[in-house]
Simulated scan of single mutants.
Amino acid sequence: MAISAKIRAMPTDMFFAIKDSIVLDRVNKKVSLTANTKFFFRGPKFELPEALIWEYRRPPIIPIADIPTSPTKKRASVQGTITEVGEVRIVGTNNRRLRNIRITDDANNDVELTLWGEHADLELVPDLRVEITGVIITEYQNIKKIESTTSMSLKYIEEKWEIVGQLTAITSEEFLRPYDLLVTSEDTEYVITVNELSEIEGNIQELPITVHITTRSNGPTIECVKMTTYTDDTGTEI
């Protein structure tokens, strides 16, 4: 009987194992076998402790400074700021997609993270604060690094900060929300989104104008929490 027929004929509650050449499709939530896959139809019953499964899927966060002395193949999670984002490349005979980025912590320790497959297409830009769960420590040319796994997840860490600068352009002439602001501060341009929850104080009809903006970011989008226009001693907006 062919393996596919044996699999279809398997009873429920049967313990089995599969090994080698397993293709995991996380999007459609399925596992595909290949001609090289080993399928073991009989095996002893076993139980996986819930804590062990949880630790595998969500390993504890370790300091980036500890990665150089950590063993390879160890699973871990890290936090930090994205400081470099490379281009997506196609490598190998199986045309795998990869992208290298660099994560830096508050103490200026950094580590290279290689993103494989669908993770290479994540929307990432420098200066984002992120928490990355489920990476694996590897070594290349005697340098420790981390790589994505099929169970890796990435979430943005929300940040709030103040910007004082020149508001020079607005995407909506009628101020229909949501719209974007172009603000220049210390030679850096920011695109800031005004949504239904944003508070705007002052007249922004005439540009350019100096503004004080409280912002929030939870990913690539910078949102306006509150914006106030600056005025001089006579009350004239500047």
Rank of each mutant, 00 (worst) to 15 (best):
R102I: 13
K19W: 03
T83E: 07
K30E: 10
V125I: 15
I222K: 05
V194P: 12
P71L: 12
V88H: 04
A65S: 15
R58E: 09
A9Y: 08
E237R: 15
E47R: 09
P44W: 07
V23K: 04
T138G: 14
L154D: 06
A9M: 12
V225I: 05
V183K: 09
A9F: 06
V183T: 08
I222F: 03
N109R: 05
V183D: 07
P71N: 14
L113K: 07
P126T: 08
K19P: 01
V88A: 03
A76V: 15
S148I: 07
P126A: 07
A9H: 11
D13E: 12
Q79H: 14
V88N: 06
P220N: 00
R177G: 00
R89T: 12
V78M: 01
P71Q: 14
K226M: 06
T171C: 08
P178H: 10
T133F: 03
L176F: 10
Y179D: 11
I82R: 05
K160Y: 01
R8S: 15
A107W: 00
D187N: 15
A76E: 08
L182Y: 03
K29G: 01
S217G: 07
Y179G: 11
E199C: 04
E206Y: 04
I103Q: 01
P220W: 00
V111A: 02
V78W: 00
T81H: 03
E174A: 06
T37W: 09
E173T: 09
N36Y: 11
P71W: 05
V85S: 02
A107M: 04
N108Q: 13
T236C: 07
K38R: 15
E223P: 03
T184F: 12
V130N: 07
I103F: 02
N95D: 10
T114W: 07
T231D: 03
P11W: 04
S153W: 04
T229P: 02
R216A: 06
I22E: 05
K73V: 10
Y179K: 11
W116H: 12
A51D: 15
I238A: 10
W54P: 06
V23F: 03
P59K: 01
T133N: 09
N36E: 13
R57A: 03
P178L: 07
T228K: 13
L167D: 09
D110I: 02
V130T: 07
I82L: 13
I53Q: 13
T114A: 09
S21P: 02
Q141M: 11
L128M: 15
P11Y: 04
T150H: 10
I137C: 01
F40Q: 15
R96P: 00
E139L: 10
L48Q: 02
L128R: 11
K73P: 02
N100W: 04
E131F: 02
N100R: 12
T188R: 14
A2L: 03
T214G: 01
L154S: 04
D187S: 15
